[in-house]
Design a protein around this nucleic acid. Sequence first.
DNA 1: CATCATCGTTCCGTAAACGGAACAGTCGGG
DNA 2: CCCGACTGTTCCGTTTACGGAACGATGATG
Lengths: 173, 173
Amino acid sequence: MDPAVVGRRVRALREERGISLSTLARLAGVGKATLSGLEHGTRNPTLETLWAVTAQLGVPLTAVLTEPAAGPTVHGTAVTATLLEVFTDTDATYELYRMRVAPGVTQLSPAHAPGVTEHVTVFAGVLCAGPADAPLTAPAGGHLRWVSDVPHSYATVGDEEVAASLLLRYPRR
Amino acid sequence: MDPAVVGRRVRALREERGISLSTLARLAGVGKATLSGLEHGTRNPTLETLWAVTAQLGVPLTAVLTEPAAGPTVHGTAVTATLLEVFTDTDATYELYRMRVAPGVTQLSPAHAPGVTEHVTVFAGVLCAGPADAPLTAPAGGHLRWVSDVPHSYATVGDEEVAASLLLRYPRR
DNA sequence: CATCATCGTTCCGTAAACGGAACAGTCGGG
DNA sequence: CCCGACTGTTCCGTTTACGGAACGATGATG
């Protein structure tokens, strides 16, 4: 955990809001020296200090402590997916992703293990996805499901980026 | 942010692993006094200290800084839902929840605004949910969808707790 | 019972994070 | 130009979190 990274995030958040270091320090009730050192990563801040600052910025502590993308992120040619949650059950393991599909490109993904299914709920845009030889289409608000033990594809319909949630279900072997 | 809460989580995580305060302090390279004070909430730990301890426990910093359920949590008679993500689009707003339904109780929820739809994907257990007068049923791996502008219900089928993801779609009025 | 190990807490000197003040640099107005 | 208001950084005395050692309590062993 690099304190310099935390510092950069704090500074970025502050500058997004267009407020000065002096102002934020005063609002958060910390010394300017403290905030300056924190943003530079030259100090090793106390929880209390970090809390005061992030609270004033209106973000949770985790916003500066974790990567902007909370989970591991998978980048493909068209698809960017970040893992939101993993759920393990006696019968299967589920992985819940937030997914974005860039327009104009079709991404082909190889087959998963037998029995793996994908559920997609579209937030925005129109998604065309599913088995490569018989893809399905869903508009915003729609839902797709397919068994992904065959090669499958993802693409947008139209120029709009697609936002969706993707649920991968891996049956216990 | 209550340092006592952080302390309790650290202590809980340590005791889950069955290791002593002395041992964890040695492994994490911090003083026993430091760890003792941290667990009691009588100290105001430094990021470095907290990082050393949580890393040794094998959990991310956020595990002790945020609620066990990361987002705002809604508790009902049978349903506990925690907000994972909010997505706002030009057409609609989506809220993605992780949901648990306790067995043996049926929860009735009042109607939402017109056009609001719910998508549920079941992780574990068997869920019976939907419009109160015509609920639907889905086993683990299944998916339900209904328009929730009428009163609707949630209940498990059988004695097993249901785990699921719930997506609420609010069309822009 | 005596002994030893380990438990978690408390004491204490040191190192460092803290807030306030002083500092140089920059912009805008009279 | 000069001045005031502001920016962010640096200096400094005070506060406090730090690790190590000492402590009493507990449990296992001979």
